[in-house]
Design a protein around this nucleic acid. Structure first.
Lengths: 155, 155
DNA sequence: GTCACTGCAAAAGGTTTGCAACGGA
DNA sequence: TCCGTTGCAAACCTTTTGCAGTGAC
């Protein structure tokens, strides 16, 4: 992923991501609506993975006019399906973070929830080994790393 | 994991696993009760990951006296916490499979749901690379492979 | 004007909890 | 007997759905 690096939000550069999703909506027969724009701005402000309900609830309290529950759920589902949101699995449940379409993995801080995306998982050797050992034809994988980010190591 | 190999159920040898969990319950201040025993037998019979609700519902229809919902949820939670059940993430949701405590990963058939556990994930190189690149102190990971098992390749 | 999208409100699921009764060790 | 466990039923929380109205293009 070639995007300007910036540690402000969870892994991605906020403006870059917002712009990218906007243009995704403008192409392909989708519509760039008011509620969606607000959602983008809210999503990008999280410092850790967020859930659908959480985003919905937060927006109710912060915004004057906030998207309805159905809109929030449907939009998240769409963005996740298209790769603009990545689903993160943590001990305390599932959540989403802004992301980019493509083969990415995530490194998650177990203390503050910060997420960093990375490419290159170097699993080819393992895949080959297992393919021959198990008779499976391996097609994909789920990989996520856990650890402590720099700041959280010093606490 | 040194257990007798057997492909009858999802990854583990049924009798071996049931025995192991029984003795886990007999030690450590737990109790080996009737409902729990029934649950073990039901869990081991699944050919694919099962959910709590699913196990509960299935037992209601199959057994004469079946455990209550709370018991099913609580028992699953306990076994998962102790490593006797592994949580499996699939496209169609989350599920559990019989497993053994320790560092294991799973290879899941995307068609029939069959699961095979394996050790040795060969992520050391990746972990080192990321540790130096990101300032994270990496402590663990979630890894799951997806593919088609032998049988499902021929369909 | 068309059709994707929205919002409401209800329904549908899944999971958790309190508490009195039960039953392994 | 002791205390972990059970079962019920209600509460709770999250997610989905139908449908009439709205607004982006």
């Amino acid at each position: 992923m070639s995007q300007p690096s910036d540690a402000a939000t969870v892994g991605v550069n906020p403006e870059f991501w917002v712009k990218a999703v906007r243009s995704y909506w403008q192409g392909g027969g989708y519509r760039l609506t008011e509620p969606r724009q607000r959602m983008l701005d809210s999503m990008v402000a999280y410092a850790a993975p967020f859930s659908a309900e959480q985003l919905y609830a937060d927006m109710q309290t912060v915004e004057v006019v906030a998207p309805g529950r159905a809109t929030v759920y449907r939009t998240i589902e769409q963005l996740n399906g298209a790769g603009w949101l990545a689903r993160i699995h943590t001990q305390s449940g599932e959540g989403y973070v802004p992301s980019f379409p493509g083969h990415l993995h995530h490194l998650v801080c177990t203390r503050c929830g910060k997420v960093v995306a990375f490419e290159g998982c170097a699993l080819e050797g393992l895949v080959e080994r297992l393919a021959s050992q198990t008779d499976f034809m391996i097609e994909g994988h789920l990989l996520q790393l856990y650890g402590r980010c720099g700041e959280c190591q010093r606490v």
